[in-house]
């Protein structure tokens, strides 16, 4: 009788587990990786759009309902979503995604964050993230760590499909490794090239491919440049002979154009997120697009 009951329970559990995992990602990059790992066993909703500033997303009430039904919440952590995610989770009243629940994934886990302040920070330095720079998904190698984290979570919550998730992880990693080698080769001739960015959003990308940050247009994280700062910045950037100004498409163009022109560099708007433009449909096409753009720009300006 006991065995029968056990088997019945097991059968019921397995049937229940057939339902798709309902996954909510804060930004589309996390959602894109979740889709590749989860395949048709998960339903993924991303809150932010790839075209917007991930620090300043509206806590639209419809997301309260989305989070209320979620089995998994994927957040970037390192204060990426601090300005809008807490009230949504609060309103969602869903035990599965509370901070200590297995369904709550903080993707920065296991990633070596750049720009972790070595000394004390205060807000006169701008909106410095005390845990480090949260834009880590712009290094494709970090994509592997993120995918690994997601595979672990999906397998724990849906053990029946663990093999499936593991196989997808393997596929994802193999593809990404091949791609990383490709991108590295494409950017190899430009190693050490100095570039300017608007916010510190490309730091991980630059480090991965050996490009060097000559300076940022923002005077401090989250602080808009004043005219006097821009005037002082230009000669400093000129001295570095920076050749590219890389900005996210949503940043103000005027100042960036002015700086690029003044230092004789090329202005290159590049998406930092999946969905940033219509060509960037998944995680690896984000790099396909950006690498191709950079190579084209540097080839021309030679």
């Amino acid at each position: 009788m006991k065995t029968k009951l056990f088997l019945l329970t097991l059968a019921l559990l397995t049937t229940n587990a057939q339902a798709k995992l309902n996954v909510v990602a804060t930004i589309p990059d996390f959602g894109a990786i979740a889709e590749e790992i989860g395949g048709d066993k998960v339903k993924v909703t991303s809150i932010a759009r790839g075209t917007e500033d991930a620090h300043f997303v509206d806590a639209r009430p419809s997301y309260v309902r989305v989070l209320n039904q979620a089995d998994v919440l994927i957040e970037g952590g390192a204060e990426l979503e601090i300005g809008w995610l807490p009230p949504l989770v609060n309103g969602a009243r869903n035990g599965k995604i509370l901070s200590d629940a297995p369904g709550h994934v903080i993707l920065s886990r296991g990633i070596r964050l750049l720009g972790v302040p070595s000394g004390p920070v205060d807000r006169s330095m701008g909106d410095v993230h005390p845990f480090g720079n949260p834009h880590y998904w712009t290094d494709p190698a970090n994509g592997k760590i993120m995918a690994n984290n997601l595979t672990e979570t999906f397998s724990r919550l849906d053990p029946v499909n663990a093999v499936f998730y593991q196989a997808n992880l393997k596929k994802f990693n193999e593809h990404l490794d091949k791609k990383i080698a490709e991108w590295t080769k494409l950017l190899e001739p430009y190693r050490g090239t100095k570039v300017v960015t608007y916010h510190k959003s490309f730091d991980y990308f630059l480090e991965r491919f050996g490009l060097e940050l000559a300076g940022t247009i923002e005077s401090k994280p989250g602080v808009e440049p004043s005219p006097s700062y821009v005037n002082a910045l230009i000669p400093r950037l000129k001295a570095t002979s920076a050749r590219l100004v890389m900005i996210e498409p949503y940043r103000p163009r005027k100042t960036s154009e002015y700086v690029a022109q003044a230092i004789g560099a090329k202005l290159l708007p590049l998406p930092t997120s999946v969905g940033g433009n219509e060509k960037v449909k998944d995680y690896s096409s984000l790099f396909d697009y950006n690498v191709a753009q950079i190579v084209a720009a540097l080839k021309d300006s030679r």
Partner: peptide
């Protein structure tokens, strides 16, 4: 010799390997 004197990099040394852990 990976040049890491850019202000963005807080940890000097060779470029990191693919997966940190």
């Amino acid at each position: 010799k990976a040049s890491t004197n850019s202000p963005a990099l807080t940890q000097p040394g060779p470029l990191p390997t693919f997966a940190a852990p």
